[in-house]
Design a binder for these strands. Structure first.
Length: 268
DNA sequence: CTATAGACCTGACGGC
DNA sequence: TGCCGTCAGGTCTATA
């Protein structure tokens, strides 16, 4: 599932292909992908636009255009952006195809059709998102404040994009494991030490996943079609039935409707 | 405010 | 082999 490290990897690897290019044409194969406008309006608005930069905010890819609009892309669970040549076949799961002024194509591939893209005025929409966990603004104090205000369990707080932007199910589980904190602990019950451990865990888990080019569980691919390997370093996420390094069995429970993996011995 | 449920989708998987 | 039901999960929307 694309979360912050996966979207960051895509941003970095897609940017050289897009920056400075113009959009020569757009094909919408699945209209449900486009939000906020009809497919034909969407196609018209993009035609001839120059791409100034490729950025990321939370789990959104932000493609800045020369007319003051941003193209926001959310990959949801199974979306990926694949760069191809002029003669490459779109494939069964292509939902939107962009053609650039140098003949290159970018396929938005999304088997489950959950992904969305939308044109917005620059800076709009993503302003509602919470703090970037890898930015300098995300301090232990910040995290402490966020957690202290919530009586709910700690995991849903990590997943709330309006509080912290970019953490999804996998990295929430990995961060809580690394911090030795049980996912059902009430958010406001964490000690100062635990908050500090969680803060460190979130940042190192995300940073290491970026260095591993993301986790290729399910349908995540990098723009060149290759996989990442962050999932190989996961300690608990998606490891039901396996043993923790402490030899206890990794458990799976459901927290607010999401599969949650943890080690009952290591996480208190 | 919080919390929950349904909707969106389709591939994978277990049971028979 | 194949059919069928269930599950997965990010976010939005609706409802309690």
């Amino acid at each position: 599932m694309p979360e912050l490290p996966e979207v960051e990897t895509i941003k970095r690897e897609l940017s050289p292909h897009l920056t400075g290019r113009r959009i020569a044409g757009t094909t919408v194969l699945w209209p449900g992908t486009v939000r906020g406008a009809s497919p034909s309006q969407f196609i018209d608005s993009l035609h001839g636009r120059k791409i100034e930069s490729v950025g990321r905010r939370g789990k959104y890819l932000v493609i800045c255009l020369d007319d003051g609009h941003d193209l926001l892309v959310h990959l949801k669970m199974t979306g990926s952006l694949i760069v191809g040549g002029p003669s490459d076949e779109p494939g069964k799961y292509a939902r939107v195809i962009f053609t650039l002024d140098n003949g290159a194509t970018v396929f938005f591939r999304d088997p489950r059709k959950f992904g969305k893209m939308q044109l917005v005025a620059r800076g709009e929409v993503t302003s509602q998102l919470g703090i970037e966990p890898l930015s300098d603004d995300f301090t232990v104090e910040q995290l402490k404040e966020l957690l202290a205000k919530r009586k709910t369990s700690v995991k849903p707080v990590l997943l709330d994009q309006n509080l912290i932007a970019g953490i999804g199910n996998m990295y929430a589980d990995e961060s809580l494991f690394e911090a030795g904190i049980h996912p059902l602990r009430p958010a406001d019950s964490l000690s100062e030490t635990e908050v500090a451990r969680l803060h460190d865990a979130i940042r190192s888990v995300l940073q290491r996943a970026i260095e591993s080019k993301g986790a290729s569980i399910a349908n995540y691919f990098r723009p060149d079609g290759s996989a990442g390997w962050a999932h190989q370093t996961f300690k608990v996420a998606h490891r039901r039935g396996e043993r923790c390094q402490c030899h206890s069995n990794i458990e799976r429970i459901v927290v607010r409707g999401r599969g949650t993996y943890f080690c009952p011995a290591c996480q208190k």
